[in-house]
């Protein structure tokens, strides 16, 4: 028996919008720790890891570890039927091949339940080792989204370089080149407007902008994004989900032949 009640149901709606174009089908894993997901895109270039900790739910009952295979496009269709202020409850019985999403309006005058068929998904869980990163950049998520969108109108790939001067995003395409440099800036009104660069050593890596743009669909989940870079590792683009956990996107770099 599984019953997870999320007062801020809009979080789950935003999570689905953030990942449904990257991943088609995925197993949601439910344990005492929380509601989580790890999935790769179909070409095995990117990986998404989601954690919504059990403490973040108003009610969290998960009698035994459960893995529920869902088509994310279908799940998104169902969650779009929930109002932004609705409380969402996820329910499943042991051994059932369906999951129920219950939507309650804030004043309890409307209650809806949507039952979705589950699917068997053969997915391999990958071990993600703890790593020391050469550079970690925290910046406003809207700024990062803007840069990725702007650069993708010029080129297909972005070179992200971190030096003492700041973080530089560069691209080149048929019509020309573009460089955007963001310097560390902590003299801002609100902490989420800051750009903070922690650099152990300079690093420069190349990534496909198509994926970066897909990751920025998580922007509504968090005012800031944290980008971790190391020369022999996938980049990590992390959006913290307030009080609950995170959504992390890992993207393998492109390398020169």
């Amino acid at each position: 028996m599984l019953e997870l009640r999320l007062v801020q149901g809009s979080l789950l709606k935003k999570v689905l919008e953030a990942i449904k174009d990257l991943v088609n089908d995925a197993n949601f894993d439910c344990s005492a720790t929380g509601f989580s997901l790890q999935a790769m895109d179909s070409s095995h270039v990117a990986l998404v890891a989601l954690l919504l900790r059990s403490e973040g739910f108003e009610h969290y009952r998960c009698d035994r570890n459960l893995s529920m295979g869902m088509n994310l496009n279908n799940m998104s269709k169902m969650l779009k039927c929930a109002g932004n202020d609705d409380i969402i409850t996820i329910k499943a019985d042991d051994g059932s091949d369906t999951v129920t999403f219950m939507f309650e309006s804030p004043n309890q005058d409307k209650i809806a339940d949507f039952e979705m068929k589950l699917m068997d998904i053969d997915s391999e869980h990958l071990g993600i080792p703890e790593a020391e990163y050469q550079a970690i950049v925290r910046m406003p998520s809207s700024e990062f989204a803007r840069i990725c969108k702007d650069l993708s109108s010029i080129g297909d790939t972005v070179v992200i370089s971190v030096t003492k001067e700041g973080v530089k995003f560069s691209t080149r395409g048929d019509i020309g080149t573009a460089n955007v440099v963001c310097r560390q800036n902590t003299t801002v009104d609100k902490p989420e407007e800051a750009t903070v660069i922690e650099m152990q050593e300079p690093v420069s890596l190349t990534f496909a902008l198509r994926y970066m743009n897909s990751f920025t669909k998580a922007t509504p989940l968090s005012g800031t994004v944290t980008i971790s870079l190391s020369s022999d590792l996938p980049i990590v683009v992390e959006y913290k989900i307030a009080e609950m956990g995170y959504i992390r996107f890992y993207l393998a770099p492109k390398i020169e032949d």
Partner: peptide
């Protein structure tokens, strides 16, 4: 020319 690496060349199946 650049080549796209796979995520599977960094993370192993657990």
């Amino acid at each position: 020319n650049s080549r796209q690496k796979s995520i599977l060349s960094f993370f192993q199946k657990s």
